[in-house]
Design a protein around this nucleic acid. Structure first.
Lengths: 125, 125
DNA sequence: TACTTATTTAGCTAAATGACTAAGTAATGT
DNA sequence: ACATTACTTAGTCATTTAGCTAAATAAGTA
């Protein structure tokens, strides 16, 4: 039940739940896209992603400097819980709203999102 | 998703998770039995039970001064989540240990448990 | 090699949380 | 009517948590 508690604690935060919901809709998202969705600073998103990784709900892969996150079931017998949760996300207006935001976000190059996040306006001329 | 978050927050505490696990094993338990199981003061147990009730996971009925708590699914479409969680409780050594404790606790009259909790030794002669 | 960039970690602050004690409420017993 | 009892709520304290900024780390670029 230790893992159960860890998983519930990981999901007991609105930003982490949004991350999980988003990651169930895409094969993977990079850190910058998640930062853009949540509208928090990079360090905060990194912290939350770390918690989700510790809980086994998220895994990451590195491609150079870029980190891509994807959803995973922490254990094979969590699959029915995961299916149920996905069904709940389908029904949620807030999650659908986030999905619309992500549709826009994923249209931009991650480099562009990073520049916006660092407060650099437009492409340098 | 607001309810989802509320339910996860309610379950994201070891004592509340133990309460839920216990209540899936009995039709109902009274406050005193839950206090005895958790080994916390009555006010703390009451607080935690209040959180679980707000999340819709627990309901209560009064019989005079005695309050009995029982488990419920917060919503009909939470049933598969509930079934999965019960299956996880079955597998958990900590939950099985709590069930053994409860077997002992439920052998006592609730009045007796209350006296013990108030620090009164044995039956008054 | 030095600089830039994407991400992570450390430390701080404010807010939230869980346990306690004390006080309060409502039901029961005398 | 008063005292007792089973619980609930308020307030306090210690701990935990979530966001921030600043610093650190590692990868890529010039």
């Amino acid at each position: 039940m230790k893992m159960l508690l860890t998983v519930f604690k990981a999901l007991a935060d609105s930003n982490r739940l949004r991350i999980i919901a988003a990651l169930t809709q895409y094969d993977e998202l990079c850190a910058t896209q998640i930062i853009e969705l949540l509208q928090v600073k990079g360090a905060s998103a990194s912290r939350q992603l770390g918690i989700l990784m510790s809980a086994g709900l998220v895994e990451s892969r590195r491609d150079g400097r870029w980190v891509y996150y994807s959803f995973q079931a922490p254990q094979s017998d969590y699959k029915s819980f995961i299916e149920w949760m996905k069904a709940e996300f389908e029904k949620s207006a807030l999650v659908q709203q986030d999905i619309k935001l992500l549709e826009g976000i994923t249209k931009y190059a991650p480099e562009e999102l990073c520049r916006r996040q660092r407060g650099i306006k437009c492409c340098p001329v």
